[in-house]
Design a protein around this nucleic acid. Structure first.
Lengths: 336, 336
DNA sequence: AGATGGTACGAAAACGGTTTCGTAAATAAA
DNA sequence: TTTATTTACGAAACCGTTTTCGTACCATCT
């Protein structure tokens, strides 16, 4: 059962290729009778159009690219579901590209997109990304691109974020309310604006409650489990050890919990912790983890909706379509 | 900065389109000097070839399709990383398609693949999949397809699995050794062969240790959190409640833990639990969870390697390339 | 009757690459 | 010197669609 093309299909029907094409695309030029006949034969012969021929001719791919650092991460995998739910409805495919937190990879992926592989892009930058020319280049090349979660402030496009400053502020304030005096901040990467905002929210909360935030309590983590474990352990071993932690990355939960266990520190008695996380298992951890839960699905869905709006009318001002969707603080045993 | 095509590039170089194409593809017909000149100009003009034109002409897409039930699942997201690591090395893209456990979606995706969108497929079937004509059709259409984890026995192709029977047997035996007398099995779906194997391993272990396994202790779960919670709760409320649980799906952890908490049952005192799971947080749950950890990355990587071998020489016997990679039982506090 | 318009279809160009084939010039072999 | 071979390039066909344009036919309107 080899795959058939439109020419062979047309032969079978004693029709021209153009007529068949129009019939399949429900053109008004074709009579209902012919359309029915074409559809029926196409079905029985198992005709499936070649997407590359269509893309080439139509100069659109019906693909959107999703560029993210990792897929093995609750936030991103849920966001993908949000994006996909919209894309499917619009008859689009989602091409997921992973940067694995490498700027080099990110640049290469966007470069490839210049070739027309995708009609639009939804992206969350890598932790290494410190400049954004590759993004602006793609946009000025006519490919609409929307940033979500980890955005670059200086790129002029729509940005879907959560209220990083406010939620971090609230989380820190919550720790203060629970009696923490020395609160540490575990960041993702110095360069990310998302990280800066969370850090600023943390600092602001400390200031507003007259707690000094020595730099020693701000740590930037790596992408690996073990180095993070060592960093956290070192932090918790110093004489002036923190009694509260605001962690801005899901991946930091395990290192913190493990380090505490190994150092015989009890959560929440000795150290309280709140983490930006979408882990479903947060509520059944030992102890259950207080999280700032981001609206992952919603953010993905929103980003996709705006992208498709941009694909419809190209002169839409994307910059003004930026949206902030609030996260929610889920208070659990790790802080109480 | 609009994207340039090969014709314009050729004009800039005062060369023919064919020469430029050959130079870019490092053909032996072109002199080194010309190649260098072409590469240089292509770089400065930011030329990126249109992938659809290449795919159309070459009748290969340089894409492989990955069809899986969900991406928000540790096993699958890690497997994707394994697949991607191989694909990237071979210069291929990965098109991830989610069935969301729907047979209808799965059929539609494979149907689309008939059109030549991908050169090969790596797939794990949905929980609803009870017959495999759609798979065989695609294969007989010339698209190599490899199954992993959730396979269909009757499809003649390579199957990458883990030792479901043995690991389930070992897990059950472990529960018996820990003193469990009434062990329940929580399955994914009746139709999956993966599920049958795990169930058979469980039953065999019970038999070998002279424990009867009334059908009441075999439950097939749904795909939703809340119904699963209700099922588990009901199971744990019956007079003859189990003192051990073998769960064959990562997603079952939260319902079991929550149900136990709500019923004031202690894990592991009242109920011991072991779960097929790749959750990184298993070790910091309350209590830490004994898991059967599948070699997710390895399975993905192996599946991809075999697929690429098949893409090289089409007459390779895929059926004989099936591989079983063992899982490992990680004993933690939920069973001790 | 002649002009006009709508309907239903076909021929051919186009999308942007790759590949086959042809060929002129340079080199090697006889 | 003649012939064969190699080198380096160009013209054109081709991949499978979509779309533009042309046209034959029929109905409708002056």
């Amino acid at each position: 059962m080899k795959n058939i093309n439109i020419r062979e299909l047309a032969q079978q029907l004693n029709l021209s290729v153009s007529t068949v094409s129009k019939a399949l695309n429900d053109s008004h030029e074709i009579s209902d009778e012919t359309k029915k006949r074409v559809l029926k034969t196409a079905a029985t012969l198992n005709y499936v159009p070649n997407p590359y021929a269509s893309s080439l001719r139509g100069r659109k791919s019906k693909n959107i690219g999703v560029v993210i650092p990792e897929v093995a991460d609750s936030f991103f995998s849920i966001a993908i579901n949000g994006i996909e739910s919209v894309a499917k409805e619009k008859g689009y495919h989602v091409l997921i590209c992973l940067t694995h937190e490498s700027f080099e990879n990110e640049k290469n992926i966007l470069k490839e997109f210049q070739g027309g592989r995708v009609d639009g892009v939804i992206m969350s930058v890598s932790r290494e990304t410190i400049q954004s020319d590759h993004i602006s280049d793609l946009i000025s090349n006519g490919v609409p691109l929307i940033l979500f979660d980890r955005v670059c402030e200086d790129v002029e496009t729509a940005k879907i974020t959560t209220d990083d400053f406010e939620s971090s502020y609230k989380a820190t304030e919550h720790l203060v309310a629970q009696g923490c005096k020395k609160i540490a901040f575990l960041g993702i990467s110095k360069s990310l604006s998302l990280n800066s905002k969370r850090q600023e929210g943390y600092v602001q909360a400390l200031n507003d409650h007259d707690l000094k935030s020595g730099n020693k309590h701000i740590i930037h983590c790596t992408n690996e489990l073990k180095p993070n474990y060592r960093l956290v352990k070192k932090l918790l071993q110093q004489k002036n050890r923190p009694d509260g932690i605001v962690a801005s990355m899901e991946k930091l939960t395990t290192p913190v919990y493990t380090a505490c266990a190994d150092l015989n520190l009890s959560i929440p008695q000795d150290v309280k912790m709140v983490c930006f996380s979408n882990l479903e298992t947060a509520s059944i951890l030992n102890p259950s983890l207080t999280t700032i839960t981001q609206p992952a699905f919603e953010m993905g869905k929103t980003a996709a909706s705006i992208l498709f709006r941009a694909l419809k009318k190209t002169n839409l001002s994307l910059t003004k379509s930026s949206i902030v969707i609030p996260s929610s603080l889920m208070i659990r045993s790790s802080t109480t």
